[in-house]
Design a protein around this nucleic acid. Sequence first.
RNA 1: GUGGGUAUAGCGUAGCUGGUUAACGCGUCAGUUUGUGGCACUGAAGACCAAGGGUUCGAAUCCCUUUACCCACCCCA
Length: 427
Amino acid sequence: MDIVTRAPRGTADKLPSQINKWHTVEKASARIAETYGCKELRTPTFEHTELFQRGVGDTTDVVQKEMYTFNDKKGRSITLKPEGTAGAVRAALENGLLNEALPLKLYYLTSCFRYEAPQSGRLREFKQFGVEYFGTDSPISDAELICMADGIFKFLKLENVQLEINSIGCPKCRAEYQKALREYYGQYKEQLCDTCKERLEKNPMRLLDCKSEICHGFAEKAPVILDYLCDECKEHFDSVRKSLDDMNIKYVVNPRIVRGLDYYTNTVFEFISDNCGTQGTICAGGRYNGLVEEIGGKSVPGLGFAMGLERVIMVMDAQNADYEPAKKCDLFIAGTDEASSLYAMGLVKQLRDYGFWAECDIVGRSLKAQMKYADKLGANFSMVIGENEMKSGKAELKNMKSGEKSVVNIGENFTESINSLLMDIDL
RNA sequence: GUGGGUAUAGCGUAGCUGGUUAACGCGUCAGUUUGUGGCACUGAAGACCAAGGGUUCGAAUCCCUUUACCCACCCCA
């Protein structure tokens, strides 16, 4: 196949027959976020590259290897957003949103772009639903945020989704912990895999989720971050846990969760399912108290999460979840000749003005073919207009499922005559 | 970047110990007597069998190369 007839690697068309799945998850997540007081924010698809270098972190894989970066015609370095948080923070700062009553609660639905090797549950363009809270440091807000994500999955009836939480502390206690990690892994340095040898200096926490057999083995006995939290961070984490318990939200503490984005502090969490290939994480997030300042604002605490919508849909597909049904045509009006087809078009227009999905023949089919087509559209009702009907001003409205017919006026008060009949249907 | 797999009509597949017009299901279109769909039946359109090269009298079928896609590692939502 020619390159122009093929979508770029790692992208996927969302076809009409599948679009109800997207509507289902997008509407559910947006509506639930709104019940938590979140307002929708839409930020540009691309930003200055520096924003992500600063926000996401210069040393992360996402920034180092996976960004779609290019120079625009004036030589500015531009990057397609690889995640949603940095742009949200930038927009909040730029537009003074943090100067109003806090907390500021935002949500967004957006495509993200990462240049990765595509596989199951991993695309180069993928869609995220995300939520960001700004201006609250209270552990209750961590719990509320997690509760929201949990609520979305419950609303969508996802099964076997496990919530894992951890705290990676503040910069102070993390430094202590990293020192301990370096000491621990230092004694096995020669045996570590090559990447881990490098990570040991730069970001020892990443050694914990290394999947090479040897490193993985060492991780089991490695020091645990939770033992190194300072009093404040420990108290925060305990409070978050208590709030979750109070809200009856089940979770497991997984001290090995290390997020790949630099901005996280304190609480981090993941919602995991084994129904989306080997990519278990369908939603992840946490607190990022240093990010706003890092990007150039005052010190304002923040926290948020992002859901990978393709993955959520994969899980729902695997679990045969219910999506909102595809819309069906309300009424098909068939014509028997040129004059009646034209008249049918006029009636259809009137119904459309009322908000109904009405159809008539626009390809010149025979009456029989029109009826077949009406059936394919899943039309709830059909009606045939011919010479007789035009003369008498009356036509038969046929319920396609039951076969019942009722007579309606097709003259002056057509819509009044038919309105209630169309509305009444509940097939 | 490293492995493994796949590539045949719009979609899903069969054919792959080489042999005349590449098959089937779904879908599309038309018809089964003229103004009524669903079911059934009949028929039609639609594929240079991913591309290029090689072996052979002859290749979708065997060999090589390339490309694309899928899956896994890595990393992440």
